[in-house]
Design a protein around this nucleic acid. Structure first.
Length: 182
DNA sequence: CCCTGATTCGC
DNA sequence: GCGAATCAGG
């Protein structure tokens, strides 16, 4: 079977299309799935269609950037408080990217052993609220102690992953049959 | 605070 | 060739 993560013609084609469409590397990576934005960018560069936001006019001053790359990474830093997701400029591995043309098919995962802990400590007021912060109304809006979740809201989502799921409660579970694409 | 692309190096 | 790691900017 085709190895996930292998750049096949289809994937490269989609990559070029999305890139030409103006999609972001992370978006393309998420759409492709099993690939990080670095991989997408790397392939984009390799293909030679990079340099979209480049200025050919001026001689690109490329001073050798001594990218210090320590051979060994101690990586002794535990999960930094906040979010456990490694989303950012670092390597993100979206193993599952449900590209549903609607609400995410969130099943009723009981998760008995899974403790869904929300960083309530991150509760913030409208003053500390940021665009990338989860806006989840807590308490009464008439109360002076009215605060927001303040969690890390996903891109294009006003709520964090946890609250987003709640806000996006599937009206009807459409997990009927499994359509098998020919 | 987060996300963007660009670059370099190890595998 | 691919991907991760890193840099620099927005």
């Amino acid at each position: 079977m085709s190895e996930a993560g292998a750049w096949t013609d289809e994937r490269v084609e989609l990559l070029k299309k999305l890139w030409n469409d103006g999609l972001s590397a992370s978006q393309i990576a998420g759409e492709l799935g099993n690939v990080t934005r670095n991989a997408v960018i790397g392939k984009v560069h390799r293909l030679g269609l990079s340099g979209r936001a480049k200025n050919p006019g001026s001689a690109a001053p490329r001073p050798r950037k001594p990218a210090t790359r320590p051979p060994a990474h101690p990586m002794a830093s535990p999960a930094a408080g906040g979010g456990g997701m490694t989303r950012g400029n670092t390597a993100l591995a979206p193993q599952f990217v449900p590209e549903i043309e609607a609400e995410p098919e969130a099943e009723h995962v009981p998760a008995p052993a899974e403790e869904v802990v929300i960083p309530f400590s991150e509760r913030v007021t409208i003053m500390d609220l940021r665009e990338y912060m989860c806006r989840w109304p807590m308490g009464d809006p008439t109360s002076p102690e009215f605060r927001f979740c303040g969690g890390r809201s996903l891109t294009g989502m006003p709520y964090c992953g946890y609250h987003a799921r709640i806000a996006y409660q599937p009206a009807t579970d459409r997990r009927r049959d499994r359509k098998v694409r020919a």
